[in-house]
């Protein structure tokens, strides 16, 4: 069986800077959550941008369901994109400050009129109703429909961003540090929400964070990135074993679990 996402020897170098990503390979099975940890500048976000095709790799392959995502262009790329959606770190930056919430949430559905997720069957033509259903999935009431992002709290904004990422019922959700800009009390709520949604929607996650505790809580497997290279990949339960890479053990030693 082919994995949902397969990364083969991926490299990316930004001009004038050190290599952002060197020879990275891993795979992600359907329904799996792969945690990706690493310090700032280790290439985590570069990897996310490559998988989202916001950047193109210098070398290597990104296979989504066996199809070469890294080589797609135009209409084929647009068609592949609906299977991979994203939650960014800062929900204040990832929502258009001038659009009312309901328009933001259903924007992907407007772009893909042919996509008809099962949880929206019967109301696919009613935009506000779809937005209300999506917001309900992330625990927000219909009272936020007509607000703008500035009228919501940080946690509410991140829930809106999650609702938008769910709207196309993607196979893979890239979570790029989804909790690191939130209050500690809100972080746990968002993590629980993401964990519940993963089961409800049968999605795979690439969960990127520098918070090893959050990654341990969310993931089935954990990959460790250091200076653009993948140094360690292991099942989540083996995090505290002594044979872990020294760099991984630095992470577990310096953070309260």
């Amino acid at each position: 069986m082919t994995p949902l996402l397969e990364i083969n020897r991926l490299s990316k170098c930004y001009p004038g800077r050190v290599n952002a990503l060197v020879d990275v390979s891993f795979s992600l099975a359907e329904g799996e959550c792969l945690g990706l940890v690493g310090e700032s500048g280790s290439g985590k976000s570069t990897l996310a941008k490559l998988i989202l095709r916001l950047e193109t790799p210098d070398q290597g392959e990104i296979l989504l369901d066996g199809a070469p995502l890294h080589a797609l262009r135009g209409r084929a790329l647009k068609n592949a994109r609906k299977h991979v959606q994203v939650i960014f770190q800062d929900p204040t930056a990832s929502l258009n400050p001038r659009l009312p919430i309901w328009k933001t949430v259903i924007e992907p559905l407007e772009n893909y009129p042919d996509v008809s997720p099962s949880f929206l069957s019967g109301i696919r033509h009613a935009k506000r109703q779809m937005a209300a259903v999506l917001l309900d999935k992330v625990g927000l009431g219909p009272d936020v429909l007509d607000r703008v992002p500035a009228q919501l709290s940080g946690g509410q904004r991140q829930r809106v961003a999650i609702a938008r990422s769910l709207s196309l019922q993607p196979k893979l959700l890239v979570c790029d540090e989804p909790t690191s800009s939130l209050d500690v009390s809100v972080q746990a709520q968002i993590l629980n929400l993401l964990k519940g949604l993963k089961n409800d929607f049968n999605m795979s996650y690439l969960f990127i964070s520098h918070d090893i505790a959050a990654v341990h809580f969310m993931s089935d497997r954990i990959a460790v990135l250091k200076k653009g290279r993948l140094v360690d990949v292991f099942a989540s339960g083996q995090l505290f074993e002594t044979r872990r890479h020294p760099y991984t053990r630095q992470f577990t030693n310096c953070q309260p679990m």
Binding site: L54, N96, P97, N111
Partner: peptide, 26 residues
């Protein structure tokens, strides 16, 4: 390069739609 524009691209917006819906109002 802001994340709301990136999110719009991931959400399947064409360049024209990003220009008139997200950038023009700014």
């Amino acid at each position: 390069e802001k994340e709301y524009v990136l999110a719009a691209r991931v959400g399947g917006c064409s360049s024209w739609k990003i220009l008139y819906r997200h950038l023009l109002p700014q």
